[in-house]
Amino acid sequence: MISTGASGMISGWYLQIVNLLAALLLLISFAMLAQRRVAGLISLFAWQGAALAVSTAIVAVFTAQWHLLYSVALTLLLKVMIIPWFFYRLVRKLGMSRDVEPLLNHSLTMLTGIVLVIFAFNLALPISQMAGTVMRSTLGIAMACVLLSFLMMITRTKALPQVIGFMAMENGIFFAATSATYGMPLVVELGVALDVLVGVFVLGIFFFQIRETFESMDLRQMEKRKEH
């Protein structure tokens, strides 16, 4: 049923859907890089989680890797529902729905993004040839997502977009793990999920504290503090 061509091109319609979703993930990463509004960023993050969950679920069902379904459920619950909801609430409460000011200019960021994608794709080529999974060709996209999220963290000045970037990076790593080895062991998965959840709530509390102290969510304020 799964036929692997000599060039690594795999037929089978479910894999095509996975490929399409992978491409979508990459697109969402770019959109996050370009997005100016915090609210938009949060919904993009939720969509990214959703795409991730769907593609993982498809892989789980069609390759009978049932343990992946737990990860899917976790992703759906945490990254598509709880965390975005929590972030929305934060944004409303802290009143920071204003534009995110990027450090680099728009087109330069995008160009860097493209270069990163090329880098990631080439980096992934030899690794994906070693991997034995059916969706190994998407490894490049997963790595590109990780790098792009990192780039997003670098180019933002506000705290919340950076946290979202961090979470998106986690998404990318998760996707990479799925495409290279059908996911991490469940214990690791659960541990990471718990860490992320706790981390988000702690950060949420921090945000209130930061605003209390500096009256702003701009991290550049903290640099100034350090200089004193």
Binding site: S7, A23, L26, I114, F121, S137
Partner: peptide, 15 residues
């Protein structure tokens, strides 16, 4: 950007 990404993805997934 979308068009260039399309080309890159073609190289990764479809060739």
């Amino acid at each position: 950007l979308l068009a260039v990404l399309g080309m890159l993805i073609h190289f990764l997934l479809e060739s």
